[in-house]
């Protein structure tokens, strides 16, 4: 039976990767937030499954934190933010989307290769998914690089945290509870601070395009 659980976790990992790519190719901020929410939900289910298979009870708490924070609270904050900032327009990307996707595929190949030796050493049920976790981190990173507006960059940052969390689950069955709580709090506080930043950036430049920040340089 654990054979099927392993396959189920693999399936969830594949969906996570798919969602990462969907976020990379998404043009609308609203859909981006919904995709982020879906990614959180997949993460939550996969963590709960790993907890069930391995009997590591602290992973249930991780799943619960993921559910509360990434599926409910953060998307809610983001939805409120974009409503108040009134930014529903299409996202501008610095590189066009097909090129971004191709770079994404290269990143996936790179991270799969990177993960292979590590997975061979690991003895966890989830060892095969480590490559996907690294790929998710790098794809979120790529999303932060290629987007010029502030809100998608923050979503990229949050998605990167999702990837890291998934990597921790797949490599070592999660981090200690204290670390996890600390990261959760960090993300939440970071979100609040960035939310304040959005308003400041917009007040200063009348736009959320962070390329304007380059004008702050003194030369």
């Amino acid at each position: 039976m654990s054979h099927y659980y392993g396959q189920f976790i693999n399936l969830l990992a594949a969906i996570l990767l798919l969602l990462s790519f969907a976020m990379l190719g998404q043009r609308r901020i609203l859909s981006l937030i919904n995709l982020f929410m879906a990614q959180g939900a997949v993460l939550c289910v996969s963590t709960a499954t790993v907890a069930f298979v391995t009997g590591q009870s602290h992973l249930y708490w991780s799943a619960l934190i993921t559910l509360l924070l990434k599926v409910i609270l953060l998307p809610w904050i983001l939805h409120r933010l974009i409503r108040r900032l009134n930014v529903k327009w299409d996202i501008e990307t610095l590189i066009n989307i097909p090129t971004t996707m191709l770079i994404g595929i290269v990143l996936v190949i790179f991270s799969f290769n990177l993960a292979l030796p590590i997975s061979e050493l690991a003895g966890t049920v989830t060892r095969a998914t480590l490559g996907i976790a690294i790929a998710a981190v790098l794809l979120a990173f790529l999303m932060m690089i290629t987007r010029s507006k502030a809100v998608p960059q923050v979503i990229g940052f949050l998605a990167m945290e999702n990837g890291l969390f998934f990597a921790a689950t797949s490599a070592t069955y999660g981090m200690p509870m204290v670390v996890e709580l600390g990261i959760a709090l960090d993300v939440l506080v970071g979100m609040v601070i960035l939310g304040v930043f959005f308003f400041q950036i917009r007040e200063r430049f009348d736009s959320l395009d962070i390329r304007h920040l380059e004008q702050l340089k003194e030369d």
């Binding site: 693999n10 996707m101 994404g104 996936v108 095969a128």
Partner: peptide, 23 residues
């Protein structure tokens, strides 16, 4: 349309990669 089909191609390549990694 090229973007749509490019996405399809990317998904198909990902399918192959995921097969090599997971299965």
């Amino acid at each position: 349309a090229p973007e749509f089909l490019g996405t399809a191609f990317m998904l198909a390549v990902l399918a192959m990669l995921v097969h090599l990694l997971l299965e």
